[in-house]
Every structure is written in structure tokens, then in C-alpha cells.
């Protein structure tokens, strides 16, 4: 996007040119530093074990092989089972999709209700929810395990979804509350005069306006839930483990030869969905974060 700040007159001269080159050199170095791990991962995952042993870390693969990828996906050993990451990957999908959808929807509804249908104690409730965003993961492990046990959800995928929804509500409510605060009250008043009620104002007026906020919240929640390891390892049993836990079991195995190429491929596979979500919803991310800063 070109903006009105692009065309501001800048000083010219040899000194400026040197500074400019210096700037780009530094930026280039930073970019390389960030990209290096990804490069090593991708190139290692495409090498044979033989080549890894004899070559160097940063060299390009001599002969490209997709064997490690296939093995990581469907044949690598997780504990005693050797079915690859595939079943656990689908576990993660089954956890992340409902987890993101439910927590985002409830957060949107709560943010709207807390700002546009204010009631006595709304601020206190919001304060308590905000407080939830500051509770460390570890603190809730034991109480949550107890709760899941009482509900009969211990060690199951629905149990883990519940944990992520409850923990995520603090964040999703915060995002949507900040969005809704920026929506003029008179829009809601106009809709009430037009005859709309609580849900029709929400679905027909607020939700369409909140698309960027949905983008931010979905990215945030998806990243949180997909990348979560602690809740996954604590609240699921081996068959219902998410992909992050399975990845750990693949990589941290203490038996046999260390297959670096398979480990790298498995790590990239486990990280791909978050990358994909950023690509798809990323343009809303920045827009949503900046929303409310200026009058639209």
C-alpha cells in the first residue's frame, strides 16, 4: 500500500547514500539470521542420512530425497507405535478447529455484551476476565485435571478442547471488547430504533464490522492451541495426543540411530498449519491490531 508518508522530501547526498547502503546491509544480516534455521531444517530434511553424516550443516542437499518426509508423516515411531505423525496431526486438527471456533465466538459475544449491553458489574466481570489472561499455564494444571476428572473428560480430545476454550476466553474477550468499544454507540441505538434485538444487532451489524478482529483472534487462538504442548501432554493420553506431543516423542527417542532428516521433516510438518493460517489471515492481523488507533 502506498501512503501519504511515502513522498515526503528526504535529504540527498553521498552521506545519505552510504547510510542507506549500511541500513540495507544490516537489515540483510538480520533477515539471514532469521532465515538460517529454516534453511537448515528444509535442506537437512531433504538429505539422506549418509549425506548428513559426511556433509556440513549449511550445505545444500546433493541428492534430493523425500523419503524422510514420507517417513515422518506415516512411518516414524511415536513411542512403540510406528504410524508417523499422521494420526496425531488429525488429533490436533480436531482440537484446534472447534477450540478456535468456540472460543472466538464466545469471545465475540462477550465483548459485544460487555460494551453495548452494559449491566451492573460489567466492568468487574471484564476485569476478572482480563485477569485470566495473566494466569500462567502451570497454575491451572492441577485444578483443571481435577475438573476434567469430575466431568469424565480426562484424557480425551473434548476435554482438551474445553481447556483451550476456557483459557482462551480471556484473550478473545479482550480482543473483541477492544473492537466493540470503538464502535459508536449510536450505531447500536440506530439498530434498536430499527427494531433489531440483541442477536440481530450482533450477527447483522457487529460481526460484519469485526472481520479484522476475527482475523486477529483466529490467528492468535490457532497459534496458541496448535502450538500448545503443556496442556496436550498433561490432559491427553497417548492416542489422543496432539501433534506437538507426538513430535516430541519422535525427536526425543533414545533408541536407535538419530534420524535428523526425519526429525526436521516432522518439525516442519507440525509447524505448517500455523504458517498457513498466517498466510491466509495475516493481512487482517496487522489491520486488526491497528484497528481503533485511527478513525476509519
Amino acid at each position: 500500500m502506498s501512503g501519504r508518508t511515502d513522498d515526503i522530501v528526504r535529504p540527498k547526498g553521498a552521506r545519505q547514500a552510504v547510510l542507506r547502503v549500511l541500513l540495507f546491509v544490516i537489515l540483510g544480516l538480520f533477515a539471514a539470521y532469521y532465515l538460517l534455521p529454516l534453511f537448515v531444517m528444509v535442506s537437512t530434511s531433504l538429505k539422506t542420512l549418509e549425506e548428513i553424516r559426511t556433509g556440513t550443516l549449511v550445505s545444500l542437499p546433493g541428492t534430493v530425497t523425500f523419503e524422510p518426509w514420507a517417513k515422518a508423516w506415516s512411518a516414524a515411531c511415536v513411542g512403540v507405535k510406528c504410524e508417523g505423525l499422521k494420526p496425531y496431526f488429525w488429533n490436533s486438527v480436531l482440537i484446534a478447529v472447534p477450540g478456535v471456533a468456540i472460543s472466538t465466538f464466545l469471545g465475540a459475544l462477550a465483548g459485544y455484551a460487555l460494551t453495548k449491553w452494559r449491566f451492573r458489574g460489567a466492568d468487574v466481570i471484564f476485569g476478572l476476565m482480563l485477569f485470566g489472561a495473566f494466569i500462567p499455564f502451570q497454575v491451572i494444571l492441577l485444578p483443571m485435571a481435577r475438573t476434567l476428572g469430575l466431568l469424565g473428560l480426562a484424557g480425551t480430545i473434548p476435554g482438551l478442547i474445553l481447556v483451550h476454550v476456557v483459557y482462551g476466553l480471556a484473550f478473545t474477550t479482550l480482543f473483541f471488547r477492544n473492537f466493540a468499544v470503538g464502535v459508536s454507540d449510536s450505531i447500536v441505538q440506530a439498530a434498536k430504533i430499527d427494531g433489531a434485538g440483541f442477536f440481530s444487532i450482533f450477527f447483522r451489524i457487529l460481526v460484519p464490522m469485526a472481520v479484522p478482529t476475527f482475523g486477529v483472534t483466529v490467528i492468535w487462538q490457532f497459534t496458541q492451541i496448535w502450538n500448545d504442548f503443556l496442556f496436550g501432554v498433561a490432559f491427553t493420553s497417548s492416542d489422543s495426543n496432539p501433534v506437538t506431543v507426538a513430535l516430541n516423542n519422535v525427536v526425543a527417542t533414545s533408541t536407535g540411530v538419530k534420524e535428523y532428516n526425519v526429525d526436521m521433516a516432522a518439525a516442519i510438518l507440525a509447524g505448517l498449519p500455523t504458517l498457513l493460517v498466517y498466510v491466509i489471515a495475516g493481512r487482517y492481523f496487522v489491520r486488526g491490531l491497528a484497528a481503533g488507533a485511527v478513525k476509519g
Binding site: 449510536s186 450505531i187 441505538q189 427494531g195 464490522m209
Partner: peptide, 29 residues
């Protein structure tokens, strides 16, 4: 409630629904 008073209001800040077309803004009610 406002919707049953048979009144219509024009607001200072217009308060149009930003995601709806002019047509939909008018027919929403």
C-alpha cells in the same frame, strides 16, 4: 422500547451501518 414507539431518529454522526450498502442501510429496519 424504541422500536415500538413509531419514531425515527437522525443521529449527529449519521450512525450508518458501515458494512452495508446504502440500499441495505435503508431497508434494514
Amino acid at each position: 422500547p424504541p422500536k415500538d414507539r413509531n419514531i425515527a431518529m437522525v443521529f449527529q454522526s449519521y450512525s450508518l451501518y458501515p458494512t452495508k450498502t446504502v440500499r441495505k442501510n435503508i431497508t434494514f429496519g
